[in-house]
């Protein structure tokens, strides 16, 4: 199966794709989906999604496969690190926390005809889910805020000297 290696080599040698081309592909896919959904065509979804996927994967692979340039983007992410973590955390857990808390409202307003047994199980599940979500997200959030963008130790803490051989 040396052919696999050959294919690999060939794929990397042929750089016929360009970054703007890839991005245009992504835009085309978005357009296909948007028009299709407005018109309620249906078949456009898989076509558009495929076009978006190909375009975005090609774009990513293209940048990944070229020589690294000093990445300004990581600096950008670094300097906005804590804000980004906070916003993402809000998007990720905001709605679900509200939902889990509101769930207890159901218990309070619960009508007489409600199946109390099932409702109690529901409460139990809600409490459980809320508990584990809070614990895990809180640990992850605090670790992310504390540690994520701290700079790396440049001076080794541990002995690094060549021993006399």
């Amino acid at each position: 199966m040396a052919s696999l290696a050959t294919i690999w080599g060939r794929a990397t040698a042929n750089r016929k794709v360009s970054l703007p081309g890839c991005l245009a592909f992504v835009a085309l896919g978005v357009l296909i989906i948007a028009v299709g959904e407005v018109q309620d065509w249906g078949w456009t979804r898989i076509v558009g999604a495929t076009v978006i996927s190909i375009g975005s994967i090609a774009a990513g692979a293209l940048i990944g496969w070229s020589d690294p340039v000093r990445p300004r983007i990581t600096y950008l992410i670094s300097s906005w690190g804590k804000a980004i973590v906070a916003i993402l955390t809000l998007i990720i857990v905001g709605p679900m926390l509200i939902a889990l808390v509101v769930a207890f409202g159901g218990l309070i307003v619960g009508g007489a005809e409600a199946d109390t047994g099932l409702m109690l199980i529901g409460v139990l599940i809600a409490v459980l889910l809320l508990g584990i979500t809070l614990v895990t997200v809180a640990s992850a959030f605090s670790l992310a805020m504390r540690g994520l963008w701290r700079s790396r130790p440049d001076e080794a803490g541990e002995t690094n000297g060549r021993h006399s051989a």
């Binding site: 978006i52 692979a61 940048i63 990944g64 496969w65």
Partner: peptide, 30 residues
């Protein structure tokens, strides 16, 4: 409609990031 389009539209960003990450690693292995 926003969600129906969004679910596909938002694929683009993670796909770029994912493809970049995988491609750069393979690039380094090479």
């Amino acid at each position: 409609l926003d969600g129906q389009i969004g679910v596909y539209l938002f694929l683009a960003i993670p796909f770029v990031l994912l493809a970049f990450g995988v491609a750069r690693r393979v690039w380094m292995w090479r």
